[in-house]
């Protein structure tokens, strides 16, 4: 019996975590496509469209992180800069932060209207 190169399936699990995130954003954006134009007019379409672009970016990251993970775990080199995708994580957190703060502004604007 041959043991798998990556017994914990770490690369798969990490890739699937990105994929789940991409799916959440896609679903949210599609719901936004139905709801936002009623509240924001044409801007609503733009916001939902940007959400779909972000979702595609996350799905591409899922692919990339799978390949990174496989390579890393084959060589076992933690010093490979690909071990941590810090800039990608920072970008993801910043985007989520912008989404959350925009939502806060939206709720307050609707409430005060």
């Amino acid at each position: 019996m041959t043991s798998p190169a990556d017994p914990g399936l770490q690369a798969e699990r990490t890739s699937l975590a990105w994929r789940r995130t991409a799916l959440s954003v896609a679903v949210g954006s599609l719901i936004g496509l139905r709801v936002l134009p009623q509240q924001l007019g044409p801007t609503g379409y733009a916001v939902a469209g940007l959400g779909l672009v972000w979702s595609a970016d996350l799905a591409l990251t899922a692919r990339r992180r799978y390949r990174d993970g496989r390579r890393l775990l084959r060589t076992g080199d933690g010093r490979d800069p690909r071990a941590v995708a810090a800039p990608t994580l920072a970008r993801t957190a910043a985007t989520a932060g912008v989404v959350a703060v925009s939502a806060l502004v939206l709720v307050l604007v609707i409430a005060l209207r």
Partner: peptide, 25 residues
């Protein structure tokens, strides 16, 4: 540098928090 598997686990926890935040929003 830690074992890359630990960094990958940390990355998944990060993503879990991101999804949690998106769900709250």
């Amino acid at each position: 540098d830690p074992d890359p598997r630990f960094s990958l686990a940390n990355e998944r926890t990060f993503l879990a928090w991101i999804r949690t935040g998106l769900a709250f929003v």
